[in-house]
């Protein structure tokens, strides 16, 4: 008797691989982006099956939802362009695919030879969880045991928004995506209904991350969705005068994180070694600041160009 859940896993695995292939071979680019979104949600489902709810939340919110929004915003600007890139010579293609097949064979061999379910670092994390200040092991790893990694991750996000603002200065004026008038009052009504709810959900995800799946990245992504909805319904219109504030919020996460990490040093402690009595407070403080930064940064990445004074009629929102 086969376990029905294993059958589900096999079907889900096959669906994920087929979706990956379809994404790359489908002709229509809009369909391609929609398929990537479906692919991401299916992967998140697979990660739930692998007992990784934090990763599934992050993939669904950031890797799928926000990435999908970014892809659609770019697609909208470049869709007039036909795919006129010359294809690779057939010989090169065949050689590349042959080499990929070799890589696959090597990886499958290595994977099958590797034992699954080895203890890994899980034991070490479980032993020290009590000292971390939080009860959820993934948050303990992210914000305490490997906090340096997480700081660098926030730096990467900051670098990305700086790069996007710089690159987009040279991009021709395209009207920002909005939920157009053909939809009437529907988008605004929808926004009025769901915005308070999403804001609460984002804050809740941040808070609950100390004891259950959730945390700064998932909460920040949900709050970024608030920003995107505000931009799409034009309830918030970026102005050039908002630039200093926006820059401040982008840097807030990195600055706050680094300041706390350095200020706890001294008295026999090294940087990132939070005093045990205040660990939870400090972690929540860092997470709160990082969440604000992530939300603002991701929404800015969706918006693309920095707000600048432009007088063209309706050229921007």
């Amino acid at each position: 008797m086969i376990d029905p859940l294993l059958l589900f896993d096999v079907i889900l695995g096959l669906a994920i691989v087929s979706l990956a292939v379809t994404v790359l071979v489908v002709r229509d680019r809009f369909a391609m982006i929609v398929l990537v979104i479906v692919f991401g949600l299916m992967s998140a489902l697979a990660w739930v099956r692998l007992a990784a709810p934090d990763v599934a939340l992050a993939e669904a919110a950031i890797g799928t939802g926000l990435t999908g929004a970014l892809l659609l915003a770019t697609w909208r600007q470049v869709r007039t362009e036909p795919e006129r890139w010359p294809a690779l010579p057939r010989g090169v293609m065949v050689i590349n695919m042959g080499l990929c097949a070799l890589v696959l064979a090597g990886l499958v061999g290595a994977f099958l030879a590797t034992p699954l379910g080895t203890p890994g670092l899980g034991v070490a994390v479980a032993d020290n969880l009590a000292d971390s200040g939080v009860e959820h092991p993934v948050t303990a790893v992210l914000l305490n045991f490997r906090a340096y990694d997480t700081l660098m991750e926030v730096v990467v996000l900051l670098v990305a928004v700086i790069a996007v603002w710089m690159i987009d200065r040279g991009v021709s004026q395209a009207p920002q995506p909005t939920l157009g008038p053909e939809l009437g009052d529907l988008p605004r009504g929808f926004a009025r209904l769901v915005l308070p709810a999403i804001t609460v959900i984002g804050a809740y995800l941040l808070w609950v991350g100390t004891s259950a799946p959730g945390g700064a990245f998932q909460g920040g992504a949900v709050l970024a969705a608030v920003g995107i909805l505000l931009l799409l319904t034009q309830r918030y219109q970026p102005q050039p005068s908002h630039r200093p504030l926006a820059r401040g919020v982008f840097v807030l996460g990195v600055a706050g994180f680094a300041a706390v990490a350095l200020l706890v040093a001294g008295g026999g402690r090294v940087p990132f070694e939070y005093p045990a009595d205040h660990a939870k407070t400090l972690i929540l403080l860092i997470e709160g600041l990082v969440t604000l930064s992530i939300a603002a940064t991701l929404a800015a990445l969706f918006h693309g160009r920095e707000p600048e004074a432009i007088s063209t009629q309706g050229g921007r929102s």
């Binding site: 203890p119 092991p137 790893v141 990245f217």
Partner: peptide, 21 residues
């Protein structure tokens, strides 16, 4: 499950959206 790889993947997802943007 071991939480360390989970944290690494979450970091990877955030780095990937930065690179994609």
């Amino acid at each position: 499950p071991d939480p360390v790889p989970h944290a690494l993947v979450i970091t990877g997802i955030v780095v990937m959206i930065s690179a994609t943007a």
